[in-house]
Structure formats: C-alpha cells, structure tokens
Write a protein that binds this DNA or RNA. Structure first.
Lengths: 271, 271
DNA sequence: CGCCCGCTTGAGCCGCTTCAATGCTCGTGG
DNA sequence: CCACGAGCATTGAAGCGGCTCAAGCGGGCG
C-alpha cells in the first residue's frame, strides 16, 4: 500500500553512460541515434538529480535552464493562478520529458513537484538546441516529442470539454494502465501515485466525485480499488464506457438503489 | 456539408514569392532572420492557397505535409470522437501557424475548417525541418512557436478545469480582444468570427449558456452585443471577473430578479 | 416569399459540488 | 507501547450551475 514505484530495473544497463537507467536513453531510443551521436548527446547530459517527495523540480516563473527526463519516480505539473486556485496539467512518468512548457517563453509556466522521491537527468536547453542542429535525428525526435505533448494536451482538452465524470476517470485509468504497461509493469494492477484530490484537480472534478466514481466502478466489478491500490478487472468494458456518451451515468449508491447502470450485464450484486 | 475533399490545388502556379501579406513574414518576424536567411526561407514557401468558408484545410488522419500560416481569414481546429461528438481545440487568426498537432505522429489529429474565406501560405514540414538546421534563429523560433502552443493549451486546460461559465467567456473575449489588437484592429469593438455553438463547444459550454452569459454581460454594461457584433465597454472590469472565482455567478434574468452580481459597483440598472 | 439557420429566452432537471461527519493509516512523541 | 493528530479516503445530504428541451424571433438566401 502507499506509493511503491520502484527503481526502474526493467531497462538493461545500456553502456550509455555512467548514469544507470538514464531516462534520456529511453527518451532518445526512438530517435535511432548512431553510437557516435548518442555519445555526443550523452556528453551534454547532467546526470542524476534527486527530487524528494513534495519538493520542487522547478517553480513557475523560473528561467528555463534544463529540460529534464525522469529516471524513476513520478511528478506533477501544476499551475496556480492569482486566486491561489490550482490546476494540475499532467503527471509525468519515467522516460518522459519535463519542462517543455517553458520553451515558448523561456520561463517555466508551471510548478513541477515530485509525487514521490524521483531521480532525473537534465540537459541545458541551449545545448539541446545546438545538438539538434548537428543531429537531424535528434532534432526530429525533439519535434516529435513536442508534437506529442501538443497531442496529449488535445486529449486533455477533449476530456475536460466533453466528458462526464465517469468517462474522465475511466480514460484516466486506461491512460495510466498503458503507461505502466509501456514501462514493463502490469497494466491491470498498480498503485496510484497521486491522491484523489490530485486526480480530481487534474480531471476537473472534486475529490469526492473521484472517490464516488471509484466506488461505483468497484461496485460493478470493473475495477477493484483499495486506497491507492487498484486492479482493473475488465479493461475492455472500461474502454467501452469512455465513448458511451449516452450511457446513463453511474447510479450513486443511495438508501433506495435506483436501478442499475444501464449497461445490461453491468449491475449491482450487493445490496 | 458532407465530405468535400478537394484536389490539392495549393501548389497553384501563383507567383512563387512576392506574396503580399504572406503570413510567414509575420510569423517569422520575431525570429530576426537576416535578409539572406529570409530569402532562403521564402524560397520554400508555397504561396497563397484559398480555403473557402466551411471548407477543410485538412482532415484528421491525413498525413502531415504542410504547416500553414494564415494570411487572412479565420479557422477552427476540431476533433471528432468515435461517437461523433466534437470538440473545438482552438481558433486561428492571421499570422498563426496551423497544423502543429500533426508533428507528433506525422498525421493530423484534427480537422481544420475555415470559418470564413481564408488565404494561407504553407511550407513542407520536411523543408522547414531542414531549414531550421541551417538557420538557428529559425529553429529557435519554431521551438518557441511550438512552446507557445503548449502554453496556450495549458491556458485552455486551466479554463476548462477550473473556471465558471462567466469566467470562461470573459477570458475568451479578452483573448480575442488581444489578438485583434495585435493585428491592428480595435481591441474593444469587433465581430465574432464564430457562432455561439462554436464558442460553447470550445469552452465546454452549451450554446444557450454562451448566449445567456452574453446577455448578462450586456445587462451589466460590460459589453454590448448584437449578434456577432460585440463591443467591450469595460475591459478592466471584464478582466477582474476572470480571477474572481468566488464572485457569485451571474444572476440569470428571471421573473423575480434575485439580487445583483455581488461586485459592488457592477449591478443592474434596468428592472 | 418562405425556409432554414443562428440566436435568445424560459422552465425544469440532473450531475456534480459543497458541506459535513466518520473511519483509516501512518508517523511522532510521551 | 500506545495515544494522538494529520492527512487521506469514503459516504451522505442538500443545493446549484449549467444542460436539455422547447418555443419564438429575425435575417439572409434560394
């Protein structure tokens, strides 16, 4: 129970550098760099920084210095407005690039905070820009990464703009599932690195709604949840629920149960 | 209506350069290119394509060929999910780059449709990538532009995640105001290029809510609106309303008016 | 002219938030 | 060792903000 991201041991100790499991190795893998290029790239990387739980990787407003990649751990990216109201823009996992929101104005737009002790590697943005000029494959990959971030944003915007609470949460869970799977972990059984409050904030919902939807999804056997520990018991049905905009929303458990979820075979079994 | 893919006639034999008001000139201005670089860049630009109202610049799923810049007109970028439900991701105005969402996967994520007859110039993404290697200032500027898009996305996510209807619409109007001003038009008097339905879709609201909020903002003299024609009568107060999360929502006009907007000096003058 | 589309406005409803109470777990210190 | 408090999670009850459904209006265009 609790957070138990472990050090990433699923990646082979590539002879990439002195830094074992350097997240940049993962990140740059799809770029297909030559050995020479990889070493050139590697020379500029600042290896291993530890950011402890609740500590900041950087604050909103700070000047863009390094782009970071996560080696292990998990971070959240968050914006706080004048009124002190927060909005979490995303959660980052190992192998993902952090800090791209600063590229536009050369200042961080957002606070980035570790959800658990996290190791990162960094590269000076200036260096990276220079490298990309010498290494077309790297340039292309950086563009792809930034493009992918834009694509991710579009997904969140669609989620926030059109989806009901249940769909948002189902989509969120499936997204986590995929990302865990991509890192060699189980796609159906994992531990949530963030609180209900953080999930709700990210999804534009109150923490109570998150909790309630989890409970309902548990009731209808799509998931089994216990605190942070979650098991997805029916991936495909969970997926189906996302596009089902017309599907009646989950019946919240009330004194007098008011019918089932309308999915036919997905109904209450308990009281 | 219906699909109206047209032949790609944008490589029309228009005079390849000396395109008056080429949007790329505007776009690349901040890059500070030398004359030589500017001409090098200009050589690759495909000048002048016309996209008529309701026609597509490109469809979701199509392969990334050109990045476009708007010379004149206005476009919307939109995603349609499996269920046929749409979400507008943004509106684009002259001088803005269109199509960056395709850079991640080399396919357009979104449909891009003209709100009015629009002229565009394009550059093959491949060419642009190549150019940026030779022209550091251009590379830097492309990165900035993509970073700015990410920043814009964050703004929309915050809007959709945390703001009330009135705040969303106020922010939307102020955003339009700034963009018109930046193009030499009045920042307080302009014509909305899109329908209520499109505004609502973009902001995660129903068209009725958009219409109602417009009416209420009109009632309290912050704006004067008549169809698409809008005048902002108090920019600063409109701005203040955005951060005021606690401000009671607009009192919808009902048979028995139920008090004022709580802003103190922003109250009804009518019945 | 008549139709369709965009816009406004009303009325009622519902999904989610808010407020509130309770339980659980874990870390800290007596 | 256990008492205690803080933070997280669950659940209930009530209210409300925005959606849906519905009707009517005006203007542009075939």
């Amino acid at each position: 129970m609790g957070t138990d991201f472990r050090l990433n041991v699923h990646r082979a100790p590539l002879p990439q550098s002195n830094c074992r499991n350097c997240g940049f190795a993962t990140w740059s893998l799809p770029a297909g760099l030559s050995l020479r290029e990889a070493s050139q790239f590697n020379d500029r990387i600042v290896h291993q920084r530890l950011v402890r739980r609740d500590e900041y990787l950087h604050h909103a407003g700070s000047v863009l210095a390094l782009l970071n990649v996560i080696n292990s751990g998990c971070l959240k990216t968050r914006i706080t407005n004048d009124g002190g109201h927060e909005q979490i823009m995303g959660f980052s996992m190992p192998g993902e690039l952090v800090g791209m929101d600063a590229i536009g104005a050369h200042r961080q737009l957002s606070d980035t905070v570790a959800l658990e002790d996290s190791h990162l590697c960094g590269i000076a943005y200036h260096d990276l820009e220079q490298l990309t000029r010498d290494i077309p494959a790297l340039q292309h990959h950086l563009h792809r990464t930034m493009g992918a971030e834009i694509a991710r944003n579009y997904g969140v915007m669609r989620l926030l703009g059109t989806m009901r609470a249940e769909q948002r949460i189902s989509l969120f869970l499936l997204n986590l599932s995929k990302r865990f799977a991509a890192r060699g972990y189980s796609d159906v059984h994992f531990s949530l690195p963030m609180t209900r409050h953080e999930i709700g904030n990210y999804l534009g919902l109150s923490l109570e709604t998150v909790s309630r939807v989890f409970s309902r999804l548990d009731d209808i056997q799509l998931i089994a949840i216990n605190g942070r520990d979650i098991e997805i018991r029916n991936l495909t049905q969970l997926q189906q629920r996302i596009s089902n905009a017309q599907a009646p929303p989950l019946p919240y458990r009330t004194k007098s149960g008011t019918g089932n979820a309308g999915q036919g075979h997905a109904r209450f079994f308990g009281i």
